[in-house]
Structures are given as structure tokens and as C-alpha cells.
Design a binder for these strands. Structure first.
Lengths: 244, 244
DNA sequence: CGACTAGTTGAGCCGATTCAACCCCAGTGG
DNA sequence: CCACTGGGGTTGAATCGGCTCAACTAGTCG
């Protein structure tokens, strides 16, 4: 498949959420990019237990990372939004410790893993950025672990809704009608460490309490303050983040 | 405080668990090292909500990383053993999203954060290694999240015991009497997302079933196969890991 | 000798789970 | 055209794993 837009004109960079790169860096990224691929909603991107020779940047769409147990119990580790980087956790030649599935139709920028080394050598700033992205993702998993380990069902839901909303807002995904929200209740349950039924009931309770609305697949936070209080959510100062 | 041993002779490197570095790299690390510090068991190393200008490599002792909620509920994200790197998640000038406490008496190698940039520029391989360490730590948090989200109490405990034991074994911490095990039941509970009381009861059940023993602070896995089955644990192939 | 920390154990309760229906809607194929 | 199917969502009932409360032991430290 042909690359539609050159990295220089990457639509993500317009959102203002990402830190600028030098022309040389962008050129290098462009040269490293082997192709773009589209993946259908619901399809796997990386298989649990297989290795992959590629890394991806999520250009558009939603994706989630998960692990599972032999009997099918599944835990979603985190959700990835456009601009996020996929595949760092996989050591080359080693089985993937987790799976990655497309939540919506998705466009990916594909990078060969063996070029990574060139990146670190030729553009140390980009190497630094990749570490940043990795640390950032770990922070998100930490947050989720704190939720699953110590928050009640309602608190977990509040946290997840706020957090996803803020992230999406940052990259310009929130329109006047709210945020197009592709998660099913099963996804929520799997991310929160809850059962589907209990997720549903708690969701309804929060909705009835007027904390949020979800109409025609669009999420609105009707009472962000109450949600934040419930979740014990603190907004971290927003700053530009790297984009590879 | 004076640095006791030069990095070249770092005792950790003898365990065979770490990948070798070139002389130039080790020299660079040595030059970056500002000092070594000792921290008493139970003392904080990084404060939740404060920023730090330093990074650390854990030279000896055990440490844990945690987050907490306004009312004191605490979740331990992971435990760090000698050779692990501390402080990546903190953005410079940004409040730490988590705290790090010493579990035992601890020795740390201290690196100034502002030298990181030099490291990436002068020794891209070391930059690559740091990314590796970060990805590895994220993987451990993933594992823990899978436990807390989807495993039963007994399964969680089995998983944690095996995992800690294997990691400690790898770096030569396991002696003929077993593994010196510094965690209290409160630590276990906080790591597993369980209450102290329930952790205690489940622990006793597993012990009575002959799966492990913990005498005089030393852990032995009496029935590793049964533990692994219970936890749905798969050993990943062991390979040398970077050490900074 | 308190005072404090870590561990142990029982009783009762509750949040979350499982099981089981049922609804709505969008495909899809006869 | 309609019957059938499957995915997503909703709801009630019964159950249970894990929680809280509470009391008690053993060891250690000043």
C-alpha cells in the first residue's frame, strides 16, 4: 500500500498535542516508514504469543492492548489513541507478552524493527522520545492498575471515562456532539477487571445520576467535577508529547 | 558519600544475568554516576507528587513502586530488585506519578537526570538499553494488572511468589536456605489488590497445601509445578538484560 | 513494663459474580 | 418479504469471594 501523506504533513501534527521535530528527523522517520496499513475493527494487530518484526504508530482509530489466561479470562491493559506507539514491549524474536486488537477501523504506520537501531544512533533525540513514549504508556498502565486494585466499580468507571475523554480531547477527537466512543461494555469490563453485568449496572447508575451521557455512540461528560471527585482524578499539566 | 566500587567491577555483573557493555560504555556510566546512597528499610526514595532531578540504579536491596488515593488506599505497582532502574516514569519538572519506597536497606547508584541526554547522544546503545528496561518494567506491570484484574486471590499469590522467586534466582539471591523474603503481608496485599486479612487466610491455605514455605523470612517453593499451574505461569526464556 | 509491629483467626456483611432471561437491531439468506 | 441469527445491551435473583470489624498472640524495642 502506498503511503498517503508524507510525515511532514502528518495530520496528527496539526492538533498541537505533539512536540515538533526537525526536518531531518521527520525525513528520517519518513525513510524508515515501510508502508501504511489499514486494519478492520475487531481484527488483531499483534497476536499474543507471537513475535513481530514491526513497530507501529497509530495514525487513526482506536486500539487496545490485552493479556489473557488459559481459560479465556481477559484483561485489557490500556487503550491506544492516534499518535500512540505500538509494539515496544515485544523483544525481537521473543513471543509477544500481550495482544493488540483494533477497536475501530484503524490506520497504522509500519516501521521495521531492525531500523530502530539506526534511529538511536542517528537521531538520539528520537531515541529519547521513544523512551518517553514507553514511560508514558507505563504510567497509563500504572493508573489502570491503581483503579483495578483499589477503586470501587463506580470509581473505576468514572476514572476510565474521564481519562479517555481527556486524552481524546487533547488530540482533537471531541466534537460538538461529544466524543465518538467505540468501546462496548465488554471492553469496559475487561479493562476495569469487572464482570459485564456489574459494569452494565454501574454504568446505568452513573448515567441516571447525570454524570455522563452516551447517546448514539457519543460520550459527553455532563458533570466532570463530580466524576473527577468520584475517581480521585487529578489532571496532570498537559504538555506536548513526542510523535514518531 | 564515596563510590565504593567502580562500575567496571560492579558485583551485579558477576551474576551472569546482565548483558556485557563495552569499556567505553562502562566508563561513561561511571562518569555519570554522581554518588552512591544508602537508604534505610521503610524510607521513601521518591515521593508521590514531587519531582526529582535524579535517576537511580538499584545496586542492592528491594524496593517497591506504588500509587495511592486520597483516602490512603494504596496499590503497589511492582517490586524492584538489584539491577533495576528507578525513576524513568518521572518527567523532569513534573510531579511524580508514583512513590518509591525501600523495602529493605538499599544501596542506590545516583545519576543526574540532565546527563541522560548526553547518554543518548554519546552512547546510543545505552539509550536503547534504557528503553528496553522501561519496556521490561511495563511488562511487569502488565502482568500484575492481569493478576489483579482477572486472577483469584490464590492465583494472584501463586503468581507473585513464583515471579519474584524467579527474578531473584536469576540474579543470585536464592541461597540453599531459600530466598530472603522481605515483604510483609501488607505489602503482598497492596500489590495484589486484596485486603490484609484475606491475603493472610489465602497465604495460609497455600502453605497448608504444601505449595511453599516461609520460615524465618526465607521463601521456598515446595511445589513449583502446582504453583505454576495455579497461576497459569509461563516461564519466558531467560536472556541477559541491560544494566546501566 | 508498655507500646508497637506483624501475623492469625472468627463472624457477619456486602460488592461483585454467575446464571438466566429478555429486548433491540442489523445483517443475511431463503 | 420475513424468518433467523448474532452482537450488544438490560434486568432480576441467587450466590460467593473477599471485605470489614474485632479480638487476640508473639516478638521486639526503648
Amino acid at each position: 500500500m502506498i503511503v498517503q501523506t508524507p510525515c511532514r504533513l502528518c495530520p496528527l501534527r496539526d492538533s498541537g498535542a505533539f512536540s515538533p521535530n526537525t526536518d531531518a528527523e521527520i525525513e528520517f522517520i519518513q525513510a524508515m516508514l515501510t508502508r501504511q496499513v489499514k486494519v478492520k475493527a475487531g481484527s488483531p494487530i499483534l497476536h499474543e504469543g507471537h513475535d513481530s518484526k514491526e513497530l507501529y504508530t497509530l495514525l487513526s482509530g482506536w486500539v487496545f492492548r490485552y493479556g489473557s489466561l488459559y481459560d479465556g479470562r481477559r484483561q485489557i491493559f490500556n487503550f491506544l489513541l492516534p499518535g500512540d506507539f505500538i509494539g515496544l514491549q515485544h523483544q525481537l524474536g521473543q513471543a509477544a507478552p500481550h495482544g493488540v486488537d483494533a477497536l475501530t477501523d484503524v490506520t497504522l504506520c509500519v516501521f521495521p524493527r531492525e531500523r530502530m537501531w539506526d534511529l538511536y544512533r542517528n537521531h538520539p533525540a528520537l531515541g529519547y522520545d521513544i523512551t518517553w513514549l514507553c514511560a508514558h504508556e507505563e504510567w497509563m498502565v500504572d493508573e489502570n492498575l491503581l483503579s483495578v486494585g483499589r477503586r470501587s466499580a463506580a470509581e473505576r468507571i468514572a476514572m476510565l471515562l474521564i481519562h479517555l475523554y481527556k486524552r481524546a480531547e487533547r488530540i482533537g477527537l471531541v466534537g460538538p456532539e461529544g466524543l465518538p466512543f467505540p468501546l462496548t461494555q465488554q471492553h469496559l469490563a475487561d479493562a476495569l477487571g469487572l464482570s459485564l453485568v456489574h459494569t452494565n449496572k454501574t454504568l446505568k447508575r452513573l448515567q441516571a445520576a447525570g454524570l455522563y451521557s452516551l447517546i448514539e455512540g457519543r460520550l459527553k461528560l455532563l458533570n466532570p467535577a463530580a466524576l473527577a471527585r468520584l475517581a480521585d482524578y487529578y489532571a496532570r499539566p498537559l504538555r506536548a508529547r513526542p510523535l514518531i
